[in-house]
């Protein structure tokens, strides 16, 4: 049973400090082991954020969202996407819709509004700064949840390998173009979004399961590895020497693991606070809380731009080929 004390403790603490701050809770289907809290500043306002995992228990997540409804300024959905935005189509995952509908007063967001705007810009900035270079091979461990990123890589001249079928379904079939990705999404997603979410994506303890390097050749062949952290962690091989990894929701332990694997540069798509990079749902919820604007609104793009979101770049190891890193 979820006591209200952990969440309300954050809420009450910040009010006791005499400052009226916004409060955001990320309700995650992920493991409780990754729970954390912090404060961040967006558009000049302080936001207290907290992640609360439910170990893959959908009913517990519904109950928690109902308890938070009207008590906080925005709720993020973690460990699950509500919307998969692929080109001009938006597919709604039914389990996530059920979670979102558990709140009637407080806005509930899933991070897709950040992925489809800010993550495109982040790839462009890495490209323009010469951190990554056209012609390099990019393994995106999952792309249907980050189509904007995949499309941007392809448009800028990178060799795209989308691993959606490899890592979600264990089918040795790399998807090599955004057009094919869009075609597969059009055929698969209308049915898949109606499946229980745990059949589509690891939740709860499955997120911390043992490493499974059977698809190592896709990692070995890539210069850049991008996308969902849990897929990367689970399927990465013994060494990632010299690779660039672009992901988020990393903890200090995750960063140490990447460093030990030889990762050259770790790019997080969301800011790092207290050693962690937050999920896109947290950032989107915080932005909604301070701006009152949601991702479906015409002003959303301007709000994201005005927020000046910054990912982070951390050099973890020297470039094995020498030269600029």
């Amino acid at each position: 049973m979820f006591s209200e004390s952990p969440i309300m403790a954050v809420y009450n603490d910040v009010h006791r400090m005499g400052r009226l701050v916004k409060t955001v809770v990320s309700v995650s289907l992920g493991s409780r082991q990754r729970d954390h809290e912090a404060t961040l500043t967006l558009l000049g306002e302080t936001v207290a954020v907290r992640r609360q995992g439910t170990d893959g228990n959908l009913e517990a997540a519904v109950n928690l969202i109902q308890a938070l409804d009207g008590q906080v300024d925005a709720i993020g959905l973690g460990g699950i996407d509500r919307y998969l935005v692929v080109r001009n189509r938006r597919y709604e995952i039914q389990d996530a819709a059920r979670l979102a509908q558990a709140a009637v007063k407080t806005p509930v967001v899933d991070g897709s509004g950040i992925k489809d705007t800010f993550e495109r810009a982040l790839i462009e900035s890495l490209h323009e700064d010469g951190v990554i270079a056209p012609g390099q091979t990019v393994l995106m461990v999952s792309s249907m949840d980050r189509f904007g990123m995949a499309e941007t890589f392809e448009r800028l001249g990178y060799q795209l390998v989308a691993g959606d079928l490899i890592f979600a379904s264990h089918i040795h079939y790399p998807i090599r173009t955004a057009d094919e990705l869009e075609e597969l999404a059009r055929k698969l997603l209308p049915s898949w979004v109606r499946l229980p979410f745990h059949q589509l994506y690891p939740v709860g303890d499955a997120q911390v399961s043992d490493a499974d390097p059977r698809f190592h050749e896709y990692f070995d062949a890539a210069d850049i590895i991008a996308g969902d952290f849990h897929y990367i962690r689970r399927y990465m091989p013994e060494t990632l020497a010299g690779k660039v990894v672009i992901t988020n929701t990393t903890t200090p332990e995750d960063v140490a693991l990447f460093a030990a694997k030889g990762v050259r540069l770790l790019v997080t798509t969301t800011p790092v606070l207290a050693g962690r990079s937050f999920g896109t749902n947290v950032i989107e919820a915080a932005l909604v809380a301070v701006s009152g604007v949601q991702s479906g609104d015409p002003d959303w793009g301007a709000v994201v731009a005005r927020a000046g979101l910054q990912g982070t770049r951390r050099q973890l190891n020297a470039n094995p080929r020498g030269g600029a890193s």
Partner: peptide
């Protein structure tokens, strides 16, 4: 096996999906 179930689902959707 769950992987085989998913694969069969994928095959049928790729043939007849949309």
């Amino acid at each position: 096996h769950q992987d085989d179930i998913m694969r069969l689902d994928i095959l049928s959707l790729l043939i007849w999906g949309e």
